[in-house]
Amino acid sequence: MRRRQKNEEKKGSPEWMTIYSDMVTLLLCFFILLFSFSEIDVQKFQAIMKSFEGSLGIWEGGKTIEQAPNINADNLPENMSTSDIQEQEDFKKLQNQIETYAEENNLDAKIVADIEERGLVIRILDNVFFDPGRAEIKPRAKEVLLYIGDMLKLEEVKDKHIKIEGHTDSDPILYTNLFESNWELSGMRASSVLRFLVDKKGIESDRISFAGYAYYRPVAPNDTAENKAKNRRVDILILKSSYSKWEPN
């Protein structure tokens, strides 16, 4: 009989292929396990993919990624950048904090937080802050402003500009002779809030401004006592980064 050569090759795949395939399978199981514990922010993922669109010459033939709505966002536009989405989420977080604070202090009917085009608006009815026809901040209002001042110094908004806006109703001033018109009253009230935030909470003076609009920017028609009460307010506005600090609106 002819002796089998020692160097005769074995049939089938090399032994290293078996070890390699086992390792790849284990890695796949590991990543599947990590994925099962993770949460996907659809809007952020889409924003990342959007940045590649057109730059690499792909996605033109059709969409390979299913566009699903983000259940954690309030109808955010699809073209928002990652920083815009993060800013919106930060505003939403602060809005929830303000609403919780107002509810816990029985002020939910007098303090409202809303996210608008310019940014986050903290709207406070004037009777929380001031007596009729006056611009001196009431003692209880100072507690509210101290809380809001702490929020304005949070990491999420510490680089945002703050605008204080005073508003009145259309009635002429009857309770005092200190102010010639609602223009002076609304401006002085906004100035009082600004000075308190700067003096008592150390808000940087270069990131805060004020304006008085009298009754020319109502949130409701000045036709009933209830609507007029809504218009007598001070708005503390945290501007979006896309708005200039000297934005007149």
Rank of each mutant, 00 (worst) to 15 (best):
V112R: 04
Q95S: 07
A47W: 02
E104T: 07
K138Y: 03
D114I: 02
K50Y: 04
E39C: 06
E60A: 07
S81E: 12
L56M: 12
G54T: 12
K92L: 11
Y101V: 07
V42Q: 06
S36C: 14
F130N: 08
I98C: 08
L28Q: 10
I137Y: 12
I137L: 15
I98P: 03
K92V: 03
D131L: 15
K92M: 08
F30S: 11
D90P: 00
L34T: 11
I85G: 07
N72A: 11
L33N: 06
I124Q: 01
E39A: 07
D41W: 05
L28A: 09
M80R: 08
S51P: 02
E39N: 10
K44M: 01
N75D: 14
N106S: 15
E87W: 01
G119D: 08
S38G: 08
L125G: 05
I115F: 01
T82P: 00
Q46N: 15
E116V: 15
Q95I: 02
T64R: 09
E136S: 15
A68S: 13
E116I: 14
T64M: 05
Q86I: 07
E104S: 10
M49Y: 04
F129M: 14
N127E: 13
R123N: 14
T82L: 09
L56S: 13
L125H: 10
T100L: 05
D126M: 04
D84H: 03
E89Q: 12
S55L: 15
E87Y: 01
F91W: 02
N106K: 10
E99W: 02
T100C: 03
D90H: 10
K110V: 11
N79M: 10
Q67T: 14
E78I: 03
F129Y: 14
S55K: 15
D108W: 05
D41G: 08
N106Q: 13
E136Y: 08
G57P: 06
E78G: 00
I111Q: 03
G61D: 15
R123H: 12
E116W: 14
I58N: 04
N127K: 10
E136W: 06
P132E: 09
G119K: 02
F35D: 13
Q97E: 11
L28R: 09
